[in-house]
């Protein structure tokens, strides 16, 4: 901690006030509200509410559609995280290695960071369009009759492809900056010790990138859970029907469209606990990482 500092009493309070006010009104209040509503059953027409204890939670766990969404979320998150991390790592290693055109490649591979997720969803709609989608035509060559929005698996496939596409740049940027921070001396020592490039990668580069990779793992999980909403919503064109959906999408759907406030709040609380656990896990690992280096 900093020891030197000013000793005014009211000035720092004044400086903190805007941040604290906004946080209390738009963070703690809604969070407390969600927690409270999750134990109540709201009248759909706005006439009062009844305390129902844990019933909103037990109903969720019994609900087939909720468990289906939960499983889909797990599979979706693992796939998106694994694919976008590994493809980005490959690209970053190559972009770090080439001499000519390195800057151009860097720009070309990272600009999609700025593309809004719903635009990625629109692109998915075009690529896999029922009548002339280029990728639909491509997979049709292998006898795959792709039906976006009709077939559960095909829709999930498009969602994964577009979510990975959108997430590659972030992972690429972090991996590349991680690679570039590996000292020259370490690389040269590795070059002398190990003649094979693959061996050098797995023995030296990969372990040195592990902290970056771990940080990115958490980033990618939160991305898959939350930031993919726009991709899902544009793919469904406002008609989710029987399509695969994540837990976050279900919170929105049940609460905002279905008017089930109690159930949706319970879902929010479950997500909060999940994210909290994830972050605490991350902080613990980050502490360990500081001890290592």
């Amino acid at each position: 901690m900093k020891r030197a500092g000013f000793s005014d009493r009211w000035l720092p309070v004044l400086f903190l006030l805007p941040q604290l006010t906004i946080i209390f009104i738009f963070f703690y209040w809604p969070a407390a509200h969600a927690l409270r509503s999750s134990f109540f059953l709201q009248d759909p027409f706005g006439f009062g509410e009844t305390f129902v204890g844990m019933k909103n939670y037990t109903m969720l766990l019994d609900s087939a559609s909720y468990m289906r969404a939960a499983w889909f979320t797990v599979i979706f998150t693992s796939l998106v995280t694994f694919l976008s991390l590994s493809i980005a790592l490959l690209l970053a290693v190559k972009a770090d290695k080439v001499i000519r055109g390195a800057k151009t490649y860097r720009t070309l591979l990272m600009w999609v960071y700025a593309v809004a997720p719903p635009v990625a969803g629109v692109i998915g709609l075009v690529l896999f369009d029922q009548s002339w989608g280029p990728l639909r035509d491509f997979v049709a060559l292998f006898g795959w009759d792709f039906r976006l929005g009709v077939n559960y698996f095909d829709t999930a496939f498009t969602l994964v492809v577009m979510s990975v596409w959108k997430q590659l740049p972030v992972n690429f940027i972090f991996f590349l900056s991680g690679l570039q921070s590996i000292p020259r001396s370490v690389r040269e020592a590795a070059l002398i010790d190990n003649r094979s490039a693959a061996g050098r990668f797995w023995d030296v580069t990969f372990p040195l990138l592990a902290p970056t990779g771990f940080f990115l793992l958490i980033i990618n999980i939160t991305y898959s859970l939350f930031d993919t909403f726009g991709i899902f919503d544009t793919q469904f064109k406002g008609e989710p029907g029987n399509n695969p959906m994540t837990l976050v999408y279900k919170v929105y759907l049940d609460g905002f469209r279905g008017n089930d406030l109690g159930g949706s709040s319970a879902q929010s609380v479950i997500l909060m606990v999940l994210v909290l656990a994830l972050t605490i896990f991350q902080f613990r690992m980050v502490e360990r990482r500081i001890h290592y280096t």
Partner: peptide
């Protein structure tokens, strides 16, 4: 994130 507490 905001997405978690979107309804309240």
């Amino acid at each position: 994130p905001l997405e978690v507490r979107i309804l309240p």
